[in-house]
Computed example of a mutant assay.
Amino acid sequence: MAILIFFVAHWYLSLFAQTFFLHRYSAHKMFTMGPITEKVFYWLTFIFQGSSFLSPYAYGVMHRLHHAHADTAEDPHSPSFSKNLFDMMWKTKNYYQEIVNKVDHIEAKFKKNVPNWAFMEKLGDSWVSRLGWGVAYIMFYYYFAESYWVFLLLPIHFLMGPVHGVIINWFAHKYGYRNYDVDDTAKNLLPIDFLMMGESYHNNHHKFGGRANFGIKWHEFDPTYPVIKLLSFLKIIKLKPNNDLNYM
Rank of each mutant, 00 (worst) to 15 (best):
88 M>S: 06
89 M>E: 14
89 M>Y: 11
90 W>C: 04
90 W>L: 05
91 K>G: 04
91 K>Y: 04
91 K>Q: 15
91 K>H: 15
92 T>S: 11
92 T>M: 13
94 N>V: 03
95 Y>G: 01
96 Y>Q: 00
97 Q>S: 02
99 I>N: 00
100 V>H: 03
100 V>Y: 01
101 N>E: 10
101 N>M: 06
102 K>N: 14
102 K>P: 01
102 K>G: 12
102 K>Y: 10
103 V>N: 13
104 D>M: 05
104 D>P: 00
104 D>I: 03
105 H>W: 00
105 H>M: 03
106 I>W: 06
107 E>P: 01
107 E>M: 11
108 A>L: 12
108 A>Y: 04
109 K>M: 14
109 K>C: 12
109 K>P: 00
109 K>N: 09
110 F>S: 07
110 F>W: 08
110 F>R: 08
111 K>C: 13
111 K>T: 04
111 K>P: 00
113 N>I: 02
114 V>S: 00
115 P>G: 14
115 P>L: 15
115 P>S: 12
116 N>F: 04
116 N>A: 13
116 N>Y: 02
117 W>S: 03
117 W>M: 03
118 A>C: 02
119 F>V: 08
119 F>C: 00
119 F>Q: 06
120 M>L: 14
120 M>T: 02
120 M>A: 10
120 M>H: 01
122 K>Y: 05
122 K>M: 08
123 L>Y: 14
123 L>G: 07
125 D>M: 13
125 D>T: 06
125 D>W: 03
127 W>V: 02
127 W>S: 05
130 R>N: 08
131 L>F: 14
133 W>Q: 08
133 W>I: 11
134 G>T: 14
135 V>N: 05
135 V>Q: 10
136 A>E: 15
137 Y>H: 13
138 I>K: 06
140 F>M: 13
140 F>A: 10
140 F>K: 02
141 Y>F: 15
141 Y>G: 15
143 Y>G: 01
143 Y>A: 11
143 Y>M: 14
144 F>K: 08
144 F>C: 11
145 A>W: 12
145 A>E: 12
146 E>A: 07
146 E>G: 09
147 S>F: 15
147 S>K: 05
148 Y>L: 14
150 V>C: 14
151 F>Q: 04
151 F>G: 07
152 L>G: 02
152 L>E: 09
153 L>D: 05
153 L>H: 12
153 L>G: 09
153 L>K: 05
155 P>L: 07
155 P>T: 00
156 I>P: 00
156 I>L: 14
157 H>Y: 12
157 H>M: 13
158 F>M: 06
158 F>K: 04
158 F>H: 01
159 L>A: 12
159 L>G: 02
159 L>Q: 11
159 L>V: 07
160 M>D: 02
160 M>I: 14
161 G>Q: 07
161 G>V: 08
